[in-house]
Design a protein around this nucleic acid. Sequence first.
DNA 1: GGACAGTACATGCACATGCATCAAATGTCG
DNA 2: CGACATTTGATGCATGTGCATGTACTGTCC
Lengths: 132, 132
Amino acid sequence: MESNAALVGRWRSLLTCYNTVACDLDRALQESHGLSMSEFETLDRIVDADCEKRRMQEIAADMYLSQSALSRTVARLEKGGLVKRGLCESDRRGVFVEITEDGRHRHAEARETHLKVLATHLATTPDLTPVS
Amino acid sequence: MESNAALVGRWRSLLTCYNTVACDLDRALQESHGLSMSEFETLDRIVDADCEKRRMQEIAADMYLSQSALSRTVARLEKGGLVKRGLCESDRRGVFVEITEDGRHRHAEARETHLKVLATHLATTPDLTPVS
DNA sequence: GGACAGTACATGCACATGCATCAAATGTCG
DNA sequence: CGACATTTGATGCATGTGCATGTACTGTCC
């Protein structure tokens, strides 16, 4: 079991790396665009799936946020006018989320900052997507 | 700039990887040993530097926690009897943190769980320590 | 149709965190 | 010595998060 030390080492490096980047990112997005990291990431997922509207569930599925956290994040975005929630006709439990024009603009601007920060931190970082 | 997609991909994988492991780790440590992840990591740093006592500052230095978060984490650990705070004679602003016997035991037990969870998640993960 | 399990999202609550600030101690410069 | 800046750790406050639960709706089985 001499690999335990290596295992812990990898874990600590992951911890440090994540926190460094996340902290920087959050600060940069907040200062330059008034967006938290979670807010930006949420917008980003919505823009990515370019189908105008998206259900909460789908967004949550490819994010790290819990269902309740996402709900509140979307609420904040809506309050800021970056996103609109609408009922889903086919399944009235569901909620569609749609970006507004303001949302698109802010996202596009923030994306620059986002990429810049990532580039300074993750230039030499490997992909961690699980193989399975 | 076609590498932007790759950059974002790496970031998202980091985000997902970190959150998955951290969430699992937190849950496992909490359920089996009544420790949060931050609490365990703090204990871990103290045990690692095997010099009986350590100043807050030194602990904070190789952790991801902010100064205030560490202060409260240590407060929680002390309340649980896993750690003792003592004044530093040479610089009376400083505070020494010392593990108790209970602390050592809990840490040793929790370490098993910790390693187990890490092994299931980070078996094939590379080290992320910055080269610089 | 009617009862009941399951699903989708919102919300009350407890809590850990970061920021700003505070008090106490130390260091520095005259 | 005396005044002021700096450092160390604690704390008030605002906020974002997860868990558990609530509410509304759907699906299933009788």
